[in-house]
């Protein structure tokens, strides 16, 4: 399989704290990659170096061979990287459909158009995208009225508007009810498989991670300490130690499993 994203030796320090230290990974086409780690492990810093909000002290990020370091976030978006936010960011004074249309208008570089009717542009494509995330029945609702889970799905539709090769999702299920979490990630996984988009996501909910991630990277204190599939990560004693705590509960679980 071909590689979509190559991160090499990413490092970032804030003052005296080394937030991320010499972090490297590859991402294949269509891969669903989880970035996990305890609070303060450097997940968000990593993320912000991938999407251009932070400039790494050292290292490089290449998207299909093109360097991303030093490029503004909006240019990175134009190169085919979509993103969703930990706390949703949408245009609250617009309808659901208009939110998606805005992404398409920007993608087609029509933002300076003064004479067309914005609501008539790229309607069909926007409706398709909403259908993809099962939001079509909410199309004409005001975004400010939506439930949080629906806003998350809307963000996903917006992020897919420019046919990205890579999707960066920062804690996609934060603030959602457990049942909604599973539904959203199942939907994301399905879209990823169908559209052959690659995804990097950070997540705190281990159920979500183990259920959907093809591969998991574990960060601790800015360093990559483990990498592998769900079951490999579960078995990894170092991960158990630093991340899951390695306490009595876990041992009891293991004993129960082996018994």
């Amino acid at each position: 399989m071909n590689t979509v994203l190559e991160a090499r030796n990413l490092s970032k320090a804030f003052g005296g704290i080394q937030a991320v230290d010499d972090f490297s990974f590859d991402l294949r086409r269509g891969e669903f990659l989880a970035l996990i780690g305890p609070n303060g492990a450097g997940k968000t810093t990593c993320f912000n170096m991938l999407n251009g909000y932070l400039k790494p002290d050292r290292g490089s990020v290449r998207l299909q061979g093109k360097e991303l370091v030093g490029i503004r976030p909006r240019k990175i978006w134009r190169m085919g990287v979509g993103r969703t936010f930990q706390i949703t960011e949408t245009f609250l004074s617009m309808t659901v459909l208009e939110n998606v249309q805005m992404a398409l208008i920007s993608y087609h570089r029509r933002c300076f158009d003064l004479f067309s009717r914005a609501t008539r542009l790229y309607r069909d494509r926007a409706e398709q995208l909403l259908e993809l995330v099962s939001m079509q029945e909410h199309a004409s609702r005001a975004c400010s009225e939506l439930a949080y889970g629906d806003l998350k799905r809307l963000e996903l539709a917006i992020a897919l508007a420019h046919d990205p090769v890579l999707l960066l999702m920062d804690e996609p299920t934060a603030g959602m009810a457990p049942s909604e979490r599973v539904a959203l990630m199942a939907l994301t996984a399905e879209i990823v498989a169908r559209q052959q988009v690659s995804v990097v996501f950070t997540e705190h909910d281990m159920d979500v991670v183990f259920a959907h991630a093809h591969r998991i990277l574990v960060l601790n204190r800015g360093e990559l300490i483990a990498e592998g599939t769900g079951s490999e990560i579960r078995e990894n004693p170092m991960v158990q130690e630093v991340y899951l705590g390695g306490g009595a509960v876990f041992e009891a679980e293991n004993e129960a499993a082996s018994a």
């Binding site: 909006r74 978006w77 949408t90 004074s93 617009m94 805005m102 933002c111 158009d113 914005a118």
Partner: peptide
């Protein structure tokens, strides 16, 4: 007319959420 145009919508979008506007490639 401009308020209903893509330009007007872009301005309203920036007003609503600058983060989102930048994230869909709007300067």
């Amino acid at each position: 007319r401009a308020a209903h145009s893509p330009f007007g919508y872009t301005l309203r979008g920036i007003r609503d959420s600058r983060t989102r506007a930048e994230a869909i490639g709007v300067d």
